[in-house]
């Protein structure tokens, strides 16, 4: 996803200006000369200056280039699905793991991604179950990470040592 510098520069400039503005509203403790907003104002100014120069140099070198360049993979449905599936599965994990528990959610994540990568579902399902269970044992039993169990809480003892 290529964005022309004419657009990217102002975006960075606005981020920097926004940061400076936000920093100016931070409360100032009375007993010290410089408050918590000083350093963010400096970094925000740096962002704003860099953004202006990127935008300006993009403007000087424009020569009719498109402002947004759609990458080739976006035109291929399967590749686009594989790409967007990654953030979607992370968000899905975030929303479901407390309700479904780690084992079920991880199995769904692994299964969905394998099927999207053209693995036959009859092979993807057992692989996903075995991999999720192994990872569950590794993190819950060996590394003592508190993973949720959801509806499988009653059988959690089988996989926790």
């Amino acid at each position: 996803m290529r964005i022309h510098d004419v657009v990217m520069g102002p975006l960075i400039l606005l981020t920097g200006l926004g940061l400076c503005l936000w920093a100016s509203f931070l409360p100032h403790p009375g007993n010290v000369a410089f408050g918590p907003g000083l350093f963010p104002t400096l970094t925000g100014s740096g962002l704003a200056i860099s953004g202006s120069i990127i935008g300006l140099s993009g403007w000087l070198k424009r020569r009719g280039q498109p402002l947004f360049h759609k990458p080739e993979w976006m035109s291929h449905r399967n590749i686009a699905l594989n790409f967007w599936l990654i953030p979607l599965l992370i968000v899905g994990y975030l929303l479901c793991v407390d309700t479904l528990g780690f084992l079920l959610t991880a199995t769904i994540v692994l299964f969905s991604m394998m099927v999207a990568n053209a693995v036959a579902w009859s092979r993807a399902l057992p692989t996903a179950i075995v991999t999720a269970a192994s990872i569950n044992v590794l993190f819950a039993s060996l590394l003592h990470v508190p993973l949720p169990w959801g509806p499988l809480t009653n059988v959690s003892g089988w996989l926790i040592w």
Binding site: I86, V109, L110, N117, V119, A128, I135, L143, V145, P146
Partner: peptide, 25 residues
């Protein structure tokens, strides 16, 4: 096709196990 899903799951668990919060995920 098998390696990428496992790497993704390790990324999710890696972030969670260090910070112990789903916010990190």
């Amino acid at each position: 096709a098998y390696v990428s899903p496992v790497v993704l799951l390790f990324c999710i668990l890696g972030a969670f196990s260090v910070e112990n919060t789903l916010f990190a995920v």
